[in-house]
Structure formats: structure tokens, C-alpha cells
Design a protein around this nucleic acid. Structure first.
Length: 569
RNA sequence: CGGGGAGUGGCGCAGUUUGGUUUAGCGCGCAGCGUUCGGGACGCUGAGGUCGUGGGUUCGAAUCCCACCUCCCCGACCA
């Protein structure tokens, strides 16, 4: 491609709305432009990257024997109602009406559609296992789109769905996909970790997220450097460090009620009473399978809801709404406390070892100081329910855990029969018995791979693409467009490399050298060939590697083998 | 949805506090001409803006008032 003939709009300054590097560079390098909040146009350079990623995914998926399909973006309300997600998915599911006032959902994910296909087409165990996938535009009306393509409302996803006869086969498929995902992310040049994850609105029992390690990641993960245990903090297990808690020797002080007008949050209360969050106990009212229960947790800790759900053997746990809180505590939100509560109270182990705690007084604008278990209130159960903290140890090998931020680029789920059951996707087994298909689903965010790659690979001058997903592999730069000899050499180089099937960009724009160098760095093409005076006088070709700034000067005749060998790197 | 910030040529900004020398500026970019040409050159000339939208106040509004829209940031079931 000749740059003089195409659209390569680079910017010296990033628009002020872009806050993180990948977003800034994607705009500056001319990969994309914003159309509306969370909705972007891919320009030629950006779309090439997407297609590169797409092809890597496609190749790896095909290797597993999965088949590519293309499901519709629009799907009718009735189908979503069968699975119950027309309700459950909430406003994140975009909906439109056709001219007859029939409602459709714009696909945020396609479990319903694929299960509908399976129930129509798959009848026998002989047709299983089956894995289908697609690469397609998805819509999610994100509560807050941000960071460019990192959290967009219209984005691109590879979603795959597996159908098996039994759990054992699902396990095989799951492992195969897990491995395939590693292959894909490896080929994309990403540094990532696979972590145990929460299943969220997709549902199912087991899931893993593939997290690209980056400071700007929206997720927090925790992992063990020794044994490899890794999980999203929202579900991480841990072995409690023995040093947390333990104040049994402290004397109990007399209970006091203090006025705390309008002080609701931990920060407000601790700021007002001049104490630390760890002196405070939060009283959270949960609805556990519909029944209100009070959870006591230290002010600086959080509840691991998954753990809680498991320990209570509950189907559904939800924080109570304001009305319920007012009914249960007879105070407004922000002033709940355990003293005088009539409902069941569950305390975290760390709370159990606290003395002279501060809590809400179950009375508006009042808190209690020096409350103590047994003396002032009773606890029904003591459980380990707080979420992981930096002091905790690995649940498997008791090594200190490492915290990191991650960008979720892939997610694999064991769905089981969640969708096949409600949508009645069944098959007949060897004995002629009807059974629901056992499903798995596997997603990859293409745009996120692109953004995450930039987060991991850039410098102050711009993007540094890995060869595998670079929009072009080589850029030939003509230093002085007025010099006919330079143009001649550049054209020759360009044509010969193009003939070799190397993806090449020729910067033949009528710009000064400096501007071209800056653009080349910004766009991050891995290999840059500079045609200037050296090429004329010395009969040498200069190749610069974007990644490490190394310059190779080689004879013209060695150019193609050299480029080939550099591409191997 | 709650809180905060912002909308002025393609991008980045000034001007708004105190309404009137502003025919609304500046840098970058863009067009033309000339000089230049290995890390974002320089000179001259020029194009491009209903100052987010709609109302209002006023002799007069980018500037004051009201409403709405859009965008960004923080938070969003942790009391």
C-alpha cells in the first residue's frame, strides 16, 4: 500500500477524552475514530489489526475441529424469554422494535440463538460432540463505556459453543479450548494469566478468565508465584494469614452512642470519629434466597459473595434494597449495626476477633462505639467470608499472594445444562434416552486484544506491534521525495517485497523526513526500511527494528533473506 | 442513575469572572507560492467557526438566566 494513496490520518495530539495509552494511541495512529460514546469506526490500519487477530483466532479454532457459523445479530424477544434473560439481562441488552412493534434484542452474546439451532438440528448422540463458533459484532449497552475499545457498546467477539453428551466430554472440550486460548494469546504476543473466575450473567459452574496483565486493567486478580494458583479477586480463595485479627487480650470498654449526622460511608464515619476503617464493622443486610440476613465485615474488608453463597448453600444472595434495610434495622441506609438486630447475624472470622468496634446504631445519624460480641449482641455463625487481602496466603501452598490488574480478553465457561434445559435442547443417547446437551461457551474480545497489546507494547513514540498482529510488517520510508534516485530504489524494494507476499507500506507521502519517522514510530510497524542518501551512496539498505531500535545495514541483494529472518524473530 | 468536569474551525487551547476595540483569537493541521529536505522546517498568502441546541434578559450575549443535548472522569447493591 502506498501511503500517498490511502487514509492514514495521524494526530500530533490525542483528543482530551482519551485517558489511557491504548486509547490515545489508537486515535493518534489513525486506527479508529469515535462516532458516539462507546461506538467507534475502524480506519484501514485498525481494521487490518482486527483482521489479523481474527485470522489467528480462526486458524486456532479450526485446528480444534470447531466450525465457523454466522448467527444473526437480531434475535426475537420470545427466544430470550424462554431463557429468562429478556428480564435478567436488564438494560444492557439493547432492544429494538420492528415496524410491527415486535421486539428484538441486539445480541450481546448468543447462548439462546445457538441453543435454538442445536435443539432443531441435533437429535442424536451420534452428532456429538459439536463445537460451533462465530466472529461477529456484539452489542452491550454498557452502564459506562470507557477507555475507547476497552469497554465499548459495539465491539467484536469470537464466541464459541460446545455441545457434549456428558460432563466428561465437556471437560475434554473445556481443556481443549483452554489450551487453544493459550495458543491464541501466545500468538498475539500477549503476557497474560488464566484465572479462576466468576460466571456472571452467562451462568454455569466453572469458568476461567484470560487476563492480560496491565496497570490500566479494570479487573483485579490475585496469583501465586510458586504454585500457579490464580483467580479473580471476586472469587479468590485464600489461606488466612495468622497475623490478621486477634485482639482477645484487649479490655472491653463501655458502650457509647455518638451522633454522626449524615455520616454513612466508612470514609465519612472514620473521618468524623478520627479512627481507622479496621476499627469499624460494616453491617450489610443481604437477602439470602429471599430472607434478610446481616453480614458483619471489617470496615476495610469486602465480602466475597461467592464464598458466602457456597458456605450458606444458598441459591441466590443479593444485597437488600433500601426498603428492606429500613424495615430490618429501623434506620436509614448507612446506620445499620448488629446491636438489637432481630435477624440472623453472620460475622466474618476477622470480626469475631475484634474488640470495641464501631458500628451503626440502627438509628439515623447515630453510631455506637465500643460494641463487643456476646456482651452487646450475639452472632449466629462465624464464617470466613471476606474477600482476599494482600496479607493473605495462597490457598494451595500458603505462599504470599501477588496482586495485579488485568484486562479480560477471553473467558471460558462450563455452562452445563443451564441453557439446554430451559430451551429443551436434548438428544437421544445410546439407550434411546432423552438427555439435555452439556454445553460450554468460550469468548474472546478482539478489540480488547488490540487495546491490550498496545497497553503492553508501546513507548513514548507510539505503538510497538508484535509482527503477528501488526497491520503491516514492513514500512519503506523515502527520506527525500524530491530525490528521484531514492524514489527509484524505494519502488524497487517495495515491489520486490510485495512480490514476496510481505505486507508492506510505502511512505511516499510528500512530507519531510522527520514527520515520516514520527508517523512510522507512532503506527508501530515492526520493521522500517529507510531509503535515503545511504541507499544511494553506500548501496546499502537500512532496516530498523521498532521494538529495540536496532539498525541493520545490509547489501541490497541480501534484503529479502534478511527481512525473512527478521520476521522469524 | 448519583457526584464532578467540559462543549469555541479537523486536533489542542485562550477569551466567559466584570456583556460592548472581537469583523471571535492562538498553536498544530489544511490549500497555494517560494526556500528547505535523515527525527514533527521557515516565510508569505489563504480557506475554514450559526462559540453544543433551544428559549430568555439586554440597545447589545461566546460572556448573564432557564431548559435540554452531547462528551469525559469518579462511583454505582460494601452501608
Amino acid at each position: 500500500m502506498r501511503m500517498s494513496k490511502g487514509l492514514f490520518p495521524t494526530l500530533k495530539e490525542a483528543p482530551k477524552e482519551a485517558k489511557i495509552v491504548s486509547h490515545k494511541l489508537m486515535i493518534r495512529a489513525g486506527l479508529m475514530r469515535k462516532l458516539a460514546s462507546g461506538i467507534y469506526t475502524y480506519l484501514p490500519l485498525g481494521y487490518r489489526v482486527i483482521r489479523k487477530i481474527e485470522n489467528i483466532i480462526r486458524e486456532e479454532m479450526n485446528k480444534t475441529g470447531a466450525q465457523e457459523v454466522l448467527l444473526p445479530t437480531l434475535s426475537p424477544q420470545e427466544l430470550w424469554e424462554e431463557s429468562g434473560r429478556w428480564e435478567v439481562y436488564g438494560p444492557e441488552l439493547m432492544r429494538i422494535k420492528d415496524r410491527h412493534n415486535r421486539l428484538f434484542g441486539l445480541g450481546p452474546t448468543h447462548e439462546e440463538v445457538i441453543t435454538d439451532l442445536a435443539r432443531r438440528e441435533v437429535k442424536s448422540y451420534r452428532q456429538l460432540p459439536l463445537t460451533l463458533y462465530q466472529i461477529q459484532t456484539k452489542f452491550r449497552d454498557e452502564i459506562r463505556p470507557r477507555f475507547g475499545m476497552m469497554r465499548a457498546r459495539e465491539f467484536h467477539m469470537k464466541d464459541a459453543y460446545s455441545f457434549d453428551r456428558n460432563e466428561k466430554d465437556l471437560e475434554k472440550n473445556y481443556k481443549k479450548m483452554y489450551q487453544t486460548y493459550q495458543n491464541i494469546f501466545d500468538r498475539c504476543g500477549l503476557k497474560y494469566k488464566a484465572v479462576e473466575a466468576d460466571t456472571g450473567p452467562i451462568g454455569g459452574d466453572v469458568s476461567h478468565e484470560f487476563m492480560v496483565l496491565a496497570k490500566t486493567g479494570e479487573d483485579q486478580i490475585v496469583y501465586c508465584k510458586k504454585c500457579g494458583y490464580a483467580a479473580n479477586v471476586n472469587r479468590a480463595e485464600y489461606h488466612r494469614s495468622p497475623v490478621t485479627g486477634h485482639q482477645s487480650s484487649v479490655k472491653e470498654k463501655p458502650l457509647k452512642k455518638v451522633k454522626t449526622p449524615g455520616m454513612k460511608s466508612v470514609e465519612e464515619v472514620t473521618g468524623f470519629l478520627k479512627c481507622k476503617p479496621k476499627d469499624l464493622v460494616k453491617t450489610l443486610i443481604y437477602k439470602v434466597d429471599g430472607k434478610p440476613i446481616a453480614i458483619l465485615i471489617r470496615g476495610d474488608h469486602g465480602v466475597n459473595e461467592r464464598r458466602l453463597e457456597k458456605l450458606l448453600k444458598a441459591k441466590e444472595i443479593l444485597l437488600a434494597d433500601e426498603k428492606t434495610i429500613e424495615k430490618v434495622t429501623s434506620a436509614s441506609l448507612g446506620f445499620s449495626g448488629p446491636v438489637g438486630l432481630k435477624i440472623k447475624i453472620i460475622a466474618d472470622s476477622d470480626v469475631a476477633s475484634m474488640k470495641n468496634m464501631i458500628s451503626g446504631a440502627n438509628e439515623k445519624d447515630y453510631h455506637l462505639i465500643n460494641i463487643n460480641i456476646d456482651r452487646d449482641f450475639k452472632v449466629d455463625r462465624i464464617l470466613d467470608i471476606r474477600s482476599v487481602i494482600p496479607e493473605d496466603l495462597c490457598p494451595k501452598c500458603k505462599t504470599k499472594l501477588t496482586f495485579s490488574r488485568g484486562i479480560e480478553v477471553g473467558h471460558v465457561f462450563k455452562l452445563g445444562t443451564k441453557y439446554s434445559q430451559v430451551l429443551k435442547a436434548t438428544f437421544l443417547d445410546e439407550k434411546g434416552k432423552e438427555k439435555p446437551m452439556i454445553m460450554g461457551c468460550y469468548g474472546i474480545g478482539l478489540d480488547r486484544i488490540m487495546a491490550a497489546s498496545i497497553e503492553q507494547n508501546h513507548d513514548e513514540n507510539g505503538i510497538i506491534w508484535p509482527l503477528s498482529i501488526a497491520p503491516y510488517q514492513v514500512l519503506v520510508l523515502i527520506v527525500n521525495n524530491q530525490d528521484k534516485r531514492q524514489i527509484k530504489i524505494a519502488e524497487k524494494v517495495y515491489n520486490s517485497l510485495e512480490k514476496e507476499g510481505i505486507e508492506i507500506l510505502l511512505d511516499d507521502r510528500d512530507l519531510r523526513a522527520g514527520a515520516k519517522f514520527k508517523d512510522a514510530d507512532l503506527m508501530g510497524i515492526p520493521l522500517r526500511i529507510t531509503i535515503g542518501n545511504k541507499a544511494i551512496k553506500g548501496n546499502k539498505i537500512e532496516i530498523k527494528i521498532r521494538k529495540n531500535n536496532k539498525v541493520h545495514e545490509i547489501d541490497k541483494k541480501d534484503l529479502i533473506p534478511k527481512i525473512r529472518s527478521l520476521r522469524e524473530m
